[in-house]
Computed example of a mutant assay.
Amino acid sequence: MTNNAAPPAETPARVEVFQLPTGTYETPAALAFQGGRFRDRRQFAATAVLVRHPKGDVLIDAGFGAHAEEHIRSLPAFRRSPHHLGATVSQQLDAAGHDRGRLLGVILTHSHWDHVSGLDSLDVPVLVTAEELRYAADSRGDRVFGRVVPGHDLRVYALDGPPHLGFPASHDLHGDGSVVIVPTPGHTTGSVAVLVTAGPGQRFAFVGDLAWQLDGIERGAQRPLVMRLLADSDPARVRRDLARVAALPPDVRIVPAHDARAYAGIPLLGA
């Protein structure tokens, strides 16, 4: 495995990271990770992240959108869960007085509905891999991506950069090591994680759905077998990339997309 020593990076002093929670949906822990209990109900977060950068800001995922109820109704019945909707990313950006002209786009960790719903009210480019576009086009049980992307500028990027922190390839968004995208193609065939360095002691790995809860990171608990078969394109690759994440330097904070606990301490936009 590639050396995990932190690469040299001249991270601009003004890089900032904010969380934008857009709601939650409820799932039994028994369906989230091996060893979980049915009576332990987990509130799965649908939270986007804003990274402010002198060269332009970027969102990681889009959370629930203005038409989230409609999006949920479009899913197969077994995928619908009790949920709570909050303010959309678009509403939170406006409430904070964010200059949309600074927003370079939304990096999608993958194309599942709870990561893309908010694109319905965000008129910004969408940064996505060619592999994930093919995955979304072939999806039968989740067609929300196809509903929300028409009219968006789809910017396809390649993971053709050098190995980074144990991952075999990378895409350095700003060229300074502050926002580096790495491949994690197991949950979906084009899934990615986004590694963000905002300054000393502020390093994050936003790993999307590589694990749904921190239990999958801290205890190495995989998804239950039935969920691996239903939710993952390649469970073996998920295990491989979970090992890579577990081997990240100890100062890198790992943030599974759906565990609200993982966002604790990341400031709210406009707070």
Results as ranks from 00 to 15, higher is better:
P82F: 04
R102D: 07
L104D: 11
H115R: 13
G118V: 11
L108P: 00
S81L: 05
L93D: 06
L93E: 05
S90A: 15
I72W: 03
L85K: 14
F78N: 04
R79G: 00
I72M: 10
D99T: 08
A87S: 14
T109A: 13
L103H: 06
L103P: 05
P82D: 13
A95I: 04
R80F: 06
H71T: 00
H84F: 05
H84T: 15
F78A: 13
G97A: 09
S121W: 02
A87H: 12
G118D: 10
L93V: 10
L104A: 14
L119E: 05
H110G: 13
A77F: 01
G86N: 12
S90C: 13
W113P: 00
S111Q: 14
H98G: 02
H84I: 10
H71S: 02
I107S: 11
G105Q: 07
G97W: 06
R102Y: 02
S111F: 04
D99E: 14
T109M: 11
G101A: 14
W113G: 00
H110D: 15
L93C: 12
G105K: 03
L104N: 11
H84W: 03
R80L: 07
G105D: 09
G105S: 09
S111P: 08
A77Q: 03
G101T: 07
H71V: 01
G101I: 10
H84G: 14
S117Y: 07
H84Y: 03
D114L: 01
R80Q: 15
D120M: 05
G118L: 06
H98A: 10
Q91H: 05
S90L: 03
H98I: 07
H71M: 04
A87M: 13
S81R: 06
S111G: 15
Q92F: 04
A77K: 01
H110F: 08
L75I: 02
T109R: 07
V116D: 04
H83Q: 12
H112T: 00
G97N: 11
P76E: 01
R102F: 05
L108N: 02
L104W: 02
A95T: 03
A95D: 13
T88F: 09
L119V: 07
H98Y: 13
A96S: 15
H115A: 09
T88R: 09
Q92C: 06
G86S: 12
D114V: 01
L85F: 14
T109P: 10
W113C: 00
A77V: 03
A77G: 01
G97P: 12
G101S: 13
T109H: 12
L122P: 00
H115T: 10
D99F: 08
R100W: 03
D114I: 00
L108D: 02
R73A: 05
T88A: 09
T88D: 11
R73L: 09
L75C: 03
R102N: 13
R100N: 04
Q91I: 05
D99K: 07
